[in-house]
Structure formats: structure tokens, C-alpha cells
């Protein structure tokens, strides 16, 4: 492989890293509160509220059922409004975040729902406020599951980021398509796939490790 290709690979790695990191962090930050909201407004929970629950749920389902490639194009005006441009690596972060946030919300919701109701009830019986129930009971009790879910989100984002080439996002996936597929440079193709596999493995095993570390229910 020529030094030029190596340089391109390295640059693509950085682009992928940038897109995935920022969109992961932002979607965690937005998706977590949504997941909490979905949980506590659910039936029989501490702030049961069917209207809010179904409203938020409907929006989330709508986004989740839109294929990423369509979503990316459909929200171009929004992307331009947020980052000032609709093409480029930074611009790709917006659709990635928009599609990952509902995913995170659902994953957090399902982890929080795993917390036995009796535990919440015990906290309430001790005079906990709803906020205390969330921060001191629900989130810590569900942490291990949430970590696994977030790991899954990151892995999916790595996959989706490959489609960012459509709007000039760059990254490893884009490189593989441009060089490997369109110019028949097999080596580039193989190199990007190997790097992607390596990154996904690394993310997954770190996630598994952290999840195991925080799971105190099986010691």
C-alpha cells in the first residue's frame, strides 16, 4: 500500500472516530432523559402519564422506522440549521445523532423497566422524591444493562457512519466504497473492513467488561 493510501486510511479513521464519538455522546445525552421520561410516565410507574408517554413514543417510533439513508436526506434543512452546512463530516453527525437518539431512548427505557417495581416501591416507602428514585435507584440499578445498550448504539453508529459518504461525511466506510468498490482497490477494501472489525470488537469487549463490572446482581 502506498503512503498515500495509508494517509487516507488514517484520515478516514479519524473521521469515523469523530463522527461516531460526537454522535454517540450527543445521542446518549438526549436519549437518556427521553428513556427516563418514557419509563416513569409508563403504566403504574412513578409519574404515570399516558399522553406524554404515547406522544413521545410515537415520535420515537416515527424516527426509528425511517431508513437512515432517507432520514439523512430528509433532514437536510435541519442539519443546515444546526451546523450551518449540509455536507461534510460534521454535517453527517446530525442525522447520525437524530437516528441514534430514539434508539438510546428505547434501550434506556427497556433497561430501566427491568428494575423490579418492588425496589422502586421500597425507595418510595422511605420517602424518596421522584428525582431520587431516578438518580439513586433506577439509573444505578439499571447501569449494567444501559452500558450494554449504549455499546450496541456505538456499534450501530459505526455501521451507519459508513453511509455518511452520501453527504460527503467521509470516514472508513466511505473510503471502502470509493476506493474498494468504485476503483477496485481490493486492498483498501480489506484494510477498512479489518480496521472496522477491530474497532467494533474493541468497543464491544470494553462495553461487556464495563457492564460486567457494574453488574452486582451476579457475584
Amino acid at each position: 500500500m502506498s503512503p498515500e493510501i495509508i494517509r487516507l486510511l488514517w484520515q478516514s479513521c479519524l473521521e469515523t472516530f469523530y463522527m461516531v464519538t460526537v454522535s454517540s455522546l450527543v445521542s446518549f445525552a438526549l436519549g437518556m432523559p427521553l428513556g427516563v421520561l418514557l419509563t416513569i410516565t409508563g403504566k403504574g410507574h412513578i409519574k404515570e402519564n399516558p399522553k406524554v408517554n404515547q406522544g413521545v413514543g410515537a415520535v420515537i417510533n416515527a424516527i426509528r422506522s425511517t431508513p437512515f439513508i432517507i432520514l439523512m436526506v430528509a433532514i437536510v434543512p435541519f442539519t443546515r440549521w444546526v451546523v450551518g452546512s449540509s455536507i461534510g463530516t460534521t454535517a453527517a453527525i446530525v442525522p447520525l445523532t437524530v437516528s441514534a437518539t430514539p434508539f438510546v431512548a428505547r434501550i434506556v427505557e427497556s433497561s430501566l423497566k427491568e428494575v423490579p417495581h418492588g425496589v422502586v416501591e421500597a425507595a418510595l416507602s422511605m420517602g424518596s422524591t421522584p428525582l431520587e428514585v431516578i438518580y439513586k435507584v433506577l439509573l444505578p440499578e439499571a447501569l449494567s444493562g444501559i452500558i450494554l445498550g449504549l455499546t450496541l448504539t456505538v456499534v450501530s453508529l459505526i455501521g451507519y457512519s459508513a453511509m455518511a459518504g452520501v453527504i460527503g461525511g467521509g470516514g472508513l466506510g466511505d473510503l471502502a466504497i470509493r476506493y474498494g468498490y468504485q476503483r477496485f482497490e481490493e486492498k483498501v477494501m480489506i484494510a477498512t473492513v479489518v480496521i472496522l472489525i477491530f474497532i467494533v470488537q474493541l468497543v464491544q469487549s470494553s462495553g461487556d467488561f464495563l457492564s460486567r463490572k457494574t453488574d452486582k446482581s451476579r457475584l
Binding site: P116, G118, E121, P140, K216
Partner: peptide, 10 residues
């Protein structure tokens, strides 16, 4: 409680 309802993470 019957099922103790302790916080498993603590």
C-alpha cells in the same frame, strides 16, 4: 417486604 427489595447495586 416479602422479597426484601434491596438495591442490588449497593
Amino acid at each position: 417486604f416479602q422479597h426484601f427489595n434491596l438495591l442490588a447495586s449497593r
